[in-house]
Design a protein around this nucleic acid. Structure first.
Lengths: 149, 149
DNA sequence: GCGGGATAATCGCTTGTGCAACAATAAATA
DNA sequence: TATTTATTGTTGCACAAGCGATTATCCCGC
């Protein structure tokens, strides 16, 4: 095997590690958020993304990108959260195709109540992952990505 | 904000980056594998995991862990692949609750035909991700995890 | 050996997802 | 201005996922 084959294998292994860590964290967050606030991970992601926007409004397509979800899934996701009163749709005046989504006070309140649970679960999941030899290096590398922030 | 709050935020941002990169890669692999071999990413993962086992056999539960899937989803996933003749179930003699899954020649052949496409797509997806400033550091960190292999 | 608890895998049911087709609006072109 | 083309978001449909209940088997203590 030459250098090229090694690179391929290293990439594949990196991807498997990434997928494994992602799966582990997501599963724990799923359980935790479900138990605490009847929120799925994507639902929490939407609320969180909205809260970190100036004025708390985003278009559907931005939301789709932020969640790595399809357009149709995003539509229904927003429907669910709107039905629960956690966000509202706002028609965009300048581009009448576009729709802004905005966090309601109830949505913001639920988010702020849930965030500590989310963060604690994330910390615990990372600690667990660190116990797995295969995952430890990636867990260690993660905080170094944004250490300066 | 104190040191503790910073750590929380760094973890959260690391997780968002991880999730974003995972979503991007998975989406590209999904398209590519679907077009090339009518395989989903998890299906490919199963075939690949089986091929890297001694004697190419694994129990359902190992498979569930390897794919980060539930037990029931694993059952149906194996059903689909078995129906397509890509793997077979083998009753375990010593523990009659257990079931081994083994790659068939057809499954191995399909895998070996698909693997180059998979690897090329992975390389391309990582290159694309590297163009995104937010993701580049993680992309760079990945190959260093198993550089010595 | 025998009952009680744990473990492996499967099945019914509900829910969320992607794809493709669609409707409405904006932008480009003639 | 009129007509085409692109973009934005929603809907119908089929499929895969998780949860909980169920069945079969193993293992431990008596």
């Amino acid at each position: 095997m030459g250098i090229k084959d090694d690179a391929v294998e290293v990439r594949a292994q990196g991807w498997r590690t990434l997928a494994a860590l992602h799966g582990l964290i997501e599963a724990e967050l799923e359980r935790s958020l479900q138990a605490e606030a009847q929120l799925s991970v994507v639902e929490y992601t939407v609320l969180d993304a909205l809260s970190r926007q100036d004025g708390w409004h985003m278009r559907m397509q931005q939301l789709a990108r932020a969640t790595a979800l399809s357009a149709s899934a995003t539509t229904r996701l927003v429907n669910r959260l709107e039905d629960r009163g956690l966000l509202t749709r706002i028609l965009c005046a300048d581009d009448r195709r576009g729709i802004y989504t905005e966090l309601t006070p109830a949505g913001l309140k639920l988010l702020e109540h849930t965030r500590p649970v989310h963060d604690a679960t994330l910390e615990r999941a990372l600690a667990e992952a660190h116990e797995v030899p295969e995952l430890a290096p990636l867990v260690d590398a993660l905080p170094r990505l944004h250490a300066g922030v």
